[in-house]
Design a protein around this nucleic acid. Structure first.
Lengths: 212, 212
DNA sequence: ACTCACCCCAATGTATACACAAAACAGGGA
DNA sequence: TCCCTGTTTTGTGTATACATTGGGGTGAGT
């Protein structure tokens, strides 16, 4: 693996996990020494993170981890809704819908095991997202969704999901996947809308609780 | 201006204008010598263009200008519709709508001078886009729109606009701006949808004619 | 004549030295 | 004591040298 890529992956992970909290100053020399690469690949990694919006140049000399609060999450979900509703509609309209039938069945089975299945759940979501990316067959849309997901990971961390919400989320995804499999574009879009509304509500509530 | 930025701007412009057509191989050394910068800033510029989707690493050793055909334009407009309808809705919902009233009047006046006003027209569009960016106050949405506009410039070049279409486009923008100014979110969204439909149709037709 | 292996070359990836600029600090004057 | 100015320091921007890897070409062997 290339050094620039290692540096990018490492910083991305640390920002998403909150190990590098918002406002943290990232010096090129400091970070490159810490991660054992030279400045060149570190610069490349930091430019990528800047493009992603995870870090920003506060002034010509100081780069910091960008802020990410409840208001950002609301704005993120506005954009997410626009892209995912469109994606769901397209996925339901195109012919290769069999995968979503399989995914729907997977979601049904996931309902069974309720405890400690968080990782399995997120893995299934990732699989679903990947299937959507293939189905929409649209680099521009996929690119936008990828950006959203990058930030979404930060949001997920701020809000520890409770098991009840997870159960609901699985059921919602099941509905979306089934709607796509059935070729019902309207239902797929509306189910996506509802899912995102519930997810946002749950996240914001979880954050409000956490900050008390 | 920094060297990396000059290189980025130069390559971006050349790709958008078609001076560097799709498939053109871009070697780091070759391009850096041509533009009078060293490899380091040229690499940075090329990485940015890669993130933008304007160039791509075909293999580990060869980077080329990405392809951009009618099908790409269709996919671009699907994504554009999702983002711009959302943006229009938000702009119409928020309080600072006065600018759009001013813009609407500008569009009305632009209808008058029909010949050679292409540059003025595009300048006005850019002003409108900037106003939307401010109005939505959403970095994620703005970021997505920015990416779309980058590619849109390539589409515009493929399709030479005719004066009749320009007249219609101005009228459509006028309606959108007025709808936003009036706080009519639904009309703003639907007018945007119609505008994008017409714009796409016109572009695809223009390309079909050109390839004959 | 065709194929496979080895070598060479060319292009990218990385490290580092130098240039430049901005911010912090210290010193002196008001 | 505060402010202004000059200097020092520190960090980014750029150039270049070195490392590494992948591809192509040439040679020999079958």
């Amino acid at each position: 693996m290339r050094a620039s890529e290692r540096a990018y992956a490492a910083l991305l992970d640390e920002i998403q996990r909150g190990i590098l909290p918002p406002g943290t100053v990232l010096g090129e020399v400091e970070q490159s020494q810490r991660l054992g690469v030279s400045r060149t690949p570190m610069r490349e990694a930091m430019r990528r993170l800047t493009a992603d919006g995870l870090i920003a140049q506060q002034s010509p000399r100081v780069t910091v981890v960008t802020d990410f609060d409840a208001d950002d999450i609301r704005k993120l979900f506005v954009t997410r809704r626009a892209l995912e509703e469109t994606a769901a509609r397209i996925a339901a309209t195109q012919p290769d819908r069999d995968v979503f039938g399989v995914l729907a069945r997977s979601f049904e089975q996931t309902v069974a095991d309720d405890e400690g299945a968080i990782d399995a759940y997120y893995a299934l979501i990732a699989e679903f997202d990947a299937a959507v990316d293939v189905a929409v067959d649209n680099a521009y849309l996929t690119q936008g969704l990828r950006a959203i997901r990058t930030h979404l990971t930060r949001a997920r961390r701020l809000a520890r999901d409770n098991s009840a919400r997870l159960q609901m989320s699985v059921a919602e995804h099941n509905l979306i996947a089934r709607a796509i499999a059935d070729g019902d574009a309207e239902l797929a879009a509306h189910a996506t809308h509802v899912h995102l509304h519930n997810a946002l509500t749950s996240i914001l509530e979880s954050i409000r609780e956490g900050s008390q």
